[in-house]
């Protein structure tokens, strides 16, 4: 469904993405793992044009775009099929939970208010926060904010959702609730790319794993193969270091 070839991105002379390829089919959940600074966030931001790639082509729903050259209209059309969930939630601070979800539907998609609200309520219900519809972001916990952000993403009925470390900004006791929501989405067949440091989540929920290090994709393979038949020493040592950390807790 989404295929990217030769994605490159530099910031001020240093190349952060050095030619990344990836491909994801409908219903796939691609977990993006890798050490800090490896370029995972940059990759995801380039995929939704929050950052403009220096090189690369993207094929999405059978349309091919040159990533550095694509115009505003193409990007806007593409974004109507995608959604993004940020590490720091980025809920609209001046809107209630319900308005956060309806805003894009009403303003960008010109949906009638009643229809947008019905759809938004269904989305909030899905993340278990229907009762918080009138709360402002500042009145919600981090975990609740992230679940509203996921409802906002889902309400647009995207073909693919990008998650950038959706639980990294959360207190440990709030992580589970958010991961449960994402897992439920996966079970419903939602296509997703999830940057995460939660290895168990990647192991249990994802169908494929992309391992990023130093701006390159060191591996892109089915989840089972990634964890069970890992041949690359670099990745083995990364996984071992995570196991150690979890052991310490």
């Amino acid at each position: 469904m989404l295929e990217v070839k030769g994605l490159r991105k530099s910031f001020g002379g240093s190349e952060i993405l050095k030619g990344v390829d990836l491909s994801i089919g409908k219903g796939d959940v691609l977990a993006v793992l890798g050490p800090s600074g490896g370029g995972k966030t940059t990759l995801l931001r380039c995929l939704n044009f929050l950052e403009r790639a220096d090189a690369g082509t993207m094929t999405f729903l059978d349309r091919t775009m040159d990533m550095p050259g694509s115009g505003k209209k193409d990007i806007a059309a593409y974004r109507r099929h995608t959604a993004f969930v940020f590490q720091s939630f980025n809920l609209f601070a001046n809107k209630t939970a319900l308005q956060n979800v309806t805003e894009g539907l009403i303003v960008a998609r010109k949906m009638a208010r009643a229809e947008a609200e019905a759809r938004a309520m269904a989305a909030l219900e899905r993340v278990g926060l229907a009762d918080k519809r009138d709360a402002y972001p500042s009145q919600l916990s981090g975990g609740q904010q992230q679940r509203v952000a996921i409802a906002r993403a889902v309400a647009g009925e995207p073909d693919i959702i990008f998650f950038d470390e959706p639980t990294s900004a959360l207190d440990p006791e709030l992580i589970g609730g958010v991961l449960d929501v994402i897992r439920a989405l996966a079970e419903d067949g939602m296509t997703m790319i999830v940057v995460t440091h939660e290895v168990n989540f990647a192991r249990n929920v994802s169908t494929r794993v992309l391992f990023m290090d130093g701006g390159k994709a060191l591996a892109e393979e089915p989840t089972a193969a990634f964890f069970q038949e890992q041949k690359l020493e670099r990745i083995q040592s990364f996984l071992r270091s995570l196991d150690r950390k979890e052991g310490e807790l």
């Binding site: 939704n48 929050l50 806007a76 974004r79 109507r80 995608t82 959604a83 993004f84 940020f86 720091s88 980025n90 809920l91 609209f92 601070a93 001046n94 809107k95 805003e103 894009g104 303003v107 960008a108 998609r109 906002r152 647009g156």
Partner: peptide, 27 residues
């Protein structure tokens, strides 16, 4: 106003003007 407000607006399909008027300027 944090940059993320603008970016979140873009990601739900809003235009620069729409985000300015409805999200950024009120804050």
């Amino acid at each position: 106003v944090p940059r993320g407000q603008m970016e979140a607006g873009y990601c739900v399909g809003m235009s620069y003007i729409q985000i300015m008027r409805r999200i950024v300027l009120p804050q």
